[in-house]
Design a protein around this nucleic acid. Sequence first.
RNA 1: GCGGGUGUGCCGGAGCGGUCAAACGGGACAGGCUUAGGACCUGUUAGCUUAGUGCUUACUUAGGUUCGAAUCCUAACACCCGCACCA
Length: 816
Amino acid sequence: MVRTDFSKIGKKWQDKWEKEKIFEIKEEKGKKKFYVLDMFPYPSGEGLHIGHAFVFSLGDIFARFKRMQGYNVLYPIGYDSLGLPAENAAIKAGTHPEEYTKKSIANFMRQQRAMGWSYDWSRMVKTSDSEFYRWDQWIFLQMLKKGLAYRKKAPVNWCRKCNTVLANEQVVDGKCWRHEDTNVEIKHLEQWFLKITDYAEELINGLEKLDWPENAKKRQLNWIGKSYGTEIDFDINGKKWSIFTTRPDTIFGVTFMVVSAQHPKLIELVTEKQKKEVDAFLKKVKSTSEKDIENLEKEGAFTGSYAINPVNGEKVPVYTGNFVVADYGCGMVMAVPAHDQRDFEFAKKYKIPIRVVVKPFEYELNAEKMSRAFTEEGELINSGEFDYSNSREAIEEITTWMEKKKLGKKTFNYKLRDWLISRQRYWGTPIPIVYCEKCGIVPVPEKELPVELPKDVKFGEGNPLTTNKKFIDAKCPKCGEKARRETDTMDTFANSSWYYLRYTDPKNDKKIFDEKKANYWAPIDQYIGGPEHITMHLIYIRFYTKFLRDLGLLKFDEPALRYFTQGIVHGADGEKMSKSRGNIVEPFETIEKSGADTLRLALVSLASPDKDSSWDEKIVLGSNKFLSRIYDYFDNVKFGKADARVESKLNKTIKEVTEYVENFKHNLAVIKLRELFDYFSGKEIDKKTAESFLKLLHIYCPFLTEELWSKLGNNGFISLESWPKVDEKKINEEFEKEEQAVEKTVADVLNILRIVNGERVYVYVLPHEVKFYSASEISRRVSREVFVFAVNDAKKYDPQNKSAKVKPGRPGIFVE
RNA sequence: GCGGGUGUGCCGGAGCGGUCAAACGGGACAGGCUUAGGACCUGUUAGCUUAGUGCUUACUUAGGUUCGAAUCCUAACACCCGCACCA
């Protein structure tokens, strides 16, 4: 047998598809659209990795499936080519990010074609094209107009390795998302923010109707983090200071207050006497951000001020502390050490009194002897008129009571913060702003967009954009005087927040996109991408979509109706693939050796695509073997007439596979295809059945099936054929029974043959079951001569009267 | 601490109330085809037992619901992932 050169077949069909532009589509009235999208890649110089091969194959499989089902399928590709990694990699390689990106993209494209992904290449977008990022700038200006883009001085996350600030979403465990070993520092800088929090409520509510994995929705919900509580006003030095709490039931147990070390108005609270102490503490806080944040001890300093508890008039000291988050709630908390672990630790350290106000139902609490805070439900004590009520119920009661007395009010808070988009780096979308001494912050007029990235900059220290004088020096659009151009660029996530819309009208140079086109294709019907994007990209893209809708450009609220998260393919050792572990799998080696079809098939056979899996080279061998068998079979196939059994099996398979593909259960679909092939490869089949099989297989193995399709004498592309339809009438459960009967009998016969040897096998069955037992089939399987008799057959040969043992579904067997 | 997930035979991994000793693939073993095979085909792969029957023990562990559980519930253990000083 000659080894089939799958990679050669691949190249042949790649070229044909491209020449005929069969995947280029346009809007069509009367045809139902379907938008399949894989999250676009950041084009690194290293080319596609196995994760790419996997996700994009999932997308392609789905796109092909929907296309064959008759939908007008939009399946585009683009490159998230702006961003820090490109800049860093370019610097490292001693080249310009633009060159680096260009090369990387070319390499990506070559590899993507080889994988057989059916993109509409004519719609390709690159975020690094000024014709793309021009619309980033345009959106920014619209947000500015609506007050959603604003500038403020704030404590921000700074990564010294990236040399830029980071969004909240980009801080992982107190470290930079790109530098696991680098602690994020807090700096106070003036930066641009997008007011995503305005959409917090809608971002929560919108989740409900989305067909997303439950855990993705939960994670977003968690991230937005809405919590209900009470805002309570405390009097400090005659001024009103509010705090936020979810435990107003413990208000009588407040023994001190803590204000965040980063609170903008902290100074107002610090008395002359305490200034030194507080300053020393603040200094320490700043330097501790360098250290391990996880095990940070709760620390603080007394400010010298006292707050008056509104419910009992008590004076309690106000501290500043390192464990209070400045921009959550009010940046200040009421501390109830008896019932909050953090407050407890703080109180112990600074010897602040602890007062129990919630008593456990079963026992007494002694404040002095407590080793930790009691945070569970209990009975109120030391709480004035609320004594003896249930603490959980008291939350509501006390809040209502305070509302009546105007001491506080019911409210809620989000964990979600506004999106900090300024980056002090070069390879990003320039923020279209000019600073004028006279006019202040002035937006660049829309007709002057794009503000292009100058090519001539120096990389090294600081923001490269500041090294190009021509770029910085600008004229104020308002007064015409000399002004300074903003040198910060936008977070790369701005680009990916709306790219899916640009695909619908990628070459439009008048507008961001044509609304008709966008509303025809979008929203995305099936989005596919990794779980790491759930709390970053997928929040931002939803936010942008809602904003563009509010501008009147979109008629829908959500960017992606259905979302599939693929699992991570680990190395053969079950560990995450990494260079240092040396367990990286290079998809290209496999493609060259066994062809893209093999790789695609292997990737989806490995495990359920939504689950993590470990790469196993054997899966490639197995897949390759299967494809070789198919190729050989079709290479010298002779068709006959349709066999009812084969047709039944085929239709059942169509039904199952369709269902599996729809739900991304490709591992199971492949099994069904294997079973079908095994079933008919030993039998005579008709051409139509064979073609249906090829069509089912096509979504996984596009090249091989194109080849075989044409070998069968077809002129067109199988890529453009339609998905087989189930003919329920042809599914005959009788055949299944028959199969099972044969299966069981074969097993029995083999079992007997192991004990006694014989040449001839006699099978006795109930008269109405005779039709289920095919002598030839059993004979084939057991390699003996086989005779089937009905028990009431007078002429049967049955020397040991085995027919007496016959029961329904169980034949008698005699071997001699 | 909070949230999500997973635990199945030698391995990967299906199954998610009966038709389950448990799909499919891989491995191992036996046999066939062959000069030979890492190629292909067939069979075996929990234990005991038997001319094909039957029985026992099995799907992390311990309980429970049920006529009946790998599948549902409760608890424990283990592992993985996400968020986290959010008041």
